[in-house]
Every structure is written in structure tokens, then in C-alpha cells.
């Protein structure tokens, strides 16, 4: 969920911007020049994912897939998500410019966390492990994102606590769908194009 401009308090905005700045710096430093076009196509895929609506009961949710971005790009998730969100702010007016740091941190930090935790599991030789790794990456990154959005609201003011709780609850059904989809995508990529996950150039 994108937080709009004018909601968060200055300390929250500054913390978010600081996390994003450091993350993006590390991400760009780890990226070789030849990886940039590759990263760009993955970033645009991530952007397009947010336009795809998947049915869920009577309603539908759009894909987030920040866990998948984390598994594929590692720390590169920071610049990637930052740019996807910047373009969303410019094209659809989701989020905003000053709040961009906080919004990016909310999605990219969980992406990097699941990368550090579950990358090994996602590239396991056993299919069962890959499915579990993918599911955990997808679902945990979403629930962490939801928690971070809730925390952003909560630290802005204690009168935001009900809104924050609702945001968190709304992330639970999305968490399951994202888990299933990330697991299937990771498994598919491993079987068809393993070097994308293993990062071996040839």
C-alpha cells in the first residue's frame, strides 16, 4: 500500500529516506554496468505486476511481488523498487515525492530481508524446498511490508493505531496469494532458466 503525501511525520519520513538512501547506495554499488539493462527489464516487470489484478473472492488484489524482486536482485531491490515507485508516482499519482523514501523502504527492506533469509532455500535442488522457500519469501515480505506501513502510521501518531491495524489485517489475504505466486514463479524459473537465480554468467 502506498502512503500518500502529507500523512507521515518528519521523523518517520527522514528514517524512511535514510534507509532507502543507504539501501540504494549499496544496491547500485553491487550492480555492474552490464547488469543495469537486466535490472531495468525486471524493474519494469515489477511495475507491470502492480497493474495485474488477481481475483480473490468477491474482490481482486493487485500483485506486489517485492519478495520475488528481492530473491532475484538482492540489494538491487532497493534501486529497482525506488524507480518503480517513482514512475508510479509520476504516472498514476500513487504515493508522492517526499514520501517516496518511506514507501520504498517499506517494500524494499522486506525484499532484502527475505533475500538474506530464503535465497538458499529457493535455489535448492529439491523441488519441495524451492516451493517452501518461494512461499516464505512471497508471504513474509508482504507481511513485513504491511507491518512497516502500520509502524509508519503508528509512529506518526498514536491516533493512527486503528488505521494501522486495519492496514496490517488487509495484508493477510494478500500474503497467501503472494506466497503461492512467488513459490510457483521461483520454481518455474529454477527449472527453465536456473542461471537467473544462481547468477552465473556465461
Amino acid at each position: 500500500m502506498h502512503i500518500s503525501e502529507g500523512v507521515l511525520s518528519p521523523p518517520v519520513l527522514i528514517t524512511g529516506a535514510a534507509i532507502t538512501l543507504v539501501g540504494t547506495w549499496i544496491g547500485l554499488k553491487n550492480t555492474k554496468a552490464q547488469q543495469v539493462p537486466l535490472m531495468a527489464v525486471l524493474t519494469s516487470t515489477f511495475f507491470v505486476a502492480s497493474l495485474i489484478h488477481v481475483p480473490l473472492g468477491p474482490s481482486s488484489v493487485h500483485l506486489v511481488l517485492n519478495g520475488l524482486v528481492g530473491i532475484l536482485l538482492g540489494f538491487g531491490a532497493f534501486p529497482s523498487i525506488l524507480i518503480a515507485l517513482l514512475l508510479q508516482a509520476l504516472f498514476f499519482q500513487f504515493g508522492g515525492i517526499i514520501v517516496l523514501g518511506a514507501n520504498t523502504a517499506n517494500m524494499a527492506l522486506p525484499a532484502v530481508i527475505v533475500y538474506l533469509l530464503f535465497k538458499k532455500l529457493c535455489i535448492s535442488e529439491k523441488r519441495r524446498n524451492r516451493i517452501i522457500g518461494g512461499f516464505l519469501s512471497g508471504s513474509i515480505s508482504i507481511i513485513l511490508s504491511g507491518t512497516m506501513v502500520a509502524l509508519c502510521l503508528f509512529f506518526t501518531g498514536s491516533n493512527f493505531n486503528h488505521a494501522a491495524k486495519t492496514v496490517l489485517i488487509a495484508h493477510v489475504p494478500i500474503m497467501i496469494i503472494e506466497g503461492i505466486i512467488t513459490a510457483l514463479v521461483v520454481d518455474f524459473i529454477f527449472r527453465v532458466k536456473p542461471e537467473m537465480l544462481l547468477g552465473t554468467e556465461h
Binding site: L38, L42, L63, I181, L184, F188, V192, K193
Partner: peptide
């Protein structure tokens, strides 16, 4: 998922 994975691979 498979559609999406296919797009990712083609993008790669």
C-alpha cells in the same frame, strides 16, 4: 504465475 515467470525469463 507461469505466465509471469515466462515474461521474466523472456525479459532476462
Amino acid at each position: 504465475s507461469y505466465m509471469f515467470a515466462m515474461i521474466l525469463i523472456r525479459s532476462y
